[in-house]
Computed example of a mutant assay.
Amino acid sequence: MLFELDGGMNSNAASGQPVRIAIPAYGSRIMPRFGQAREFFFAEIDPVSRSLQQLQPRLWDLYSDPPVVRWLVREGVDAVLCGGIHPRFQIALVSEGVEIHWGFRGEVEEVVRAWLAGGCEPLGSLTPTGEENHSCPVRRLAPKPCSCRDQQGEKS
């Protein structure tokens, strides 16, 4: 995984190179469904300090850009942080070497900063090495407690 909560790092951390994370969005909020996103935020992360270096809005043009997965790979994305994501996008992204972390809601910058600080866990993750991280073996209907979510599932 890009970041281990216990301090482990990926290959980018060893080389000191920034990690690029794509976050599908509508306005300044995380888009609930990856497959419907046209707007993204690209976050540049320092893997050593686990800090947000830059957050830049980007638009994916459905008609002139390549399909979304190829576009993200072309743009140098290492991981996707999103709300929900269909299995076909999971398979396509992971086969291209892109990690996926899903189950996030709220304002993009707040969620990214909370995730980097270790205070906001995804509902699930999938890495190109096949490492899958779910808190339970079945699909959960309600999000687990997280500082980014209140009792109704979203920060007010």
Rank of each mutant, 00 (worst) to 15 (best):
G16N: 05
D78N: 15
R74T: 12
P87V: 13
R88K: 09
E75W: 04
D46T: 03
P47Q: 04
P18C: 06
I21M: 14
P67K: 01
D65H: 02
S15Q: 14
E39L: 05
S49I: 15
R38S: 14
V48C: 04
G84V: 10
V80W: 06
S15N: 12
A37G: 02
E44F: 04
S51F: 09
V48W: 06
Q53M: 14
A37L: 05
G35T: 04
F41I: 07
W60K: 13
D61E: 10
Y26M: 08
S51Q: 15
G76P: 03
Q53T: 14
S51G: 08
G27R: 00
G76E: 06
L72T: 00
A22D: 09
S64L: 09
R70W: 04
R70H: 10
F42H: 05
R20L: 11
L81I: 11
V68K: 13
V77K: 05
I85S: 02
M31G: 05
P24S: 05
F89E: 04
P47K: 05
E39I: 01
Q17S: 13
L81V: 14
I45N: 06
V68P: 03
D46I: 01
A43W: 01
A79W: 03
P87Y: 15
D61K: 09
M31C: 13
S15A: 15
C82K: 06
D65F: 02
S15Y: 10
V73N: 07
W60H: 15
C82L: 12
F34G: 00
R29G: 01
A14C: 06
A22F: 13
R20K: 12
L55M: 11
C82M: 11
S49Y: 12
S49H: 12
S28R: 13
E44K: 11
L55R: 08
R58A: 12
Y26R: 05
P66A: 15
F89R: 04
S49P: 02
I21A: 11
F41R: 04
G27E: 00
G76Y: 02
S28A: 11
G16M: 07
P18M: 09
V73A: 14
P18S: 11
L52D: 08
R33L: 13
Q53R: 15
G76I: 07
V73H: 11
I21R: 09
G16E: 11
D65G: 00
S49D: 14
P24G: 06
R20T: 10
Y26I: 10
L81M: 15
A22K: 03
L62T: 12
V69M: 05
P57S: 06
R33K: 09
P32Q: 02
F89K: 05
I21F: 07
C82D: 04
Q54V: 14
P32W: 04
V69I: 07
Q56M: 14
V77C: 08
A25M: 04
P47N: 06
A25H: 01
G27F: 00
I21Q: 05
Q36P: 00
G84S: 15
R38M: 11
P67I: 07
E39V: 02
V77D: 03
P57W: 01
L81A: 10
P32L: 02
R29K: 13
F42C: 08
V68W: 08
S15W: 04
R29P: 00
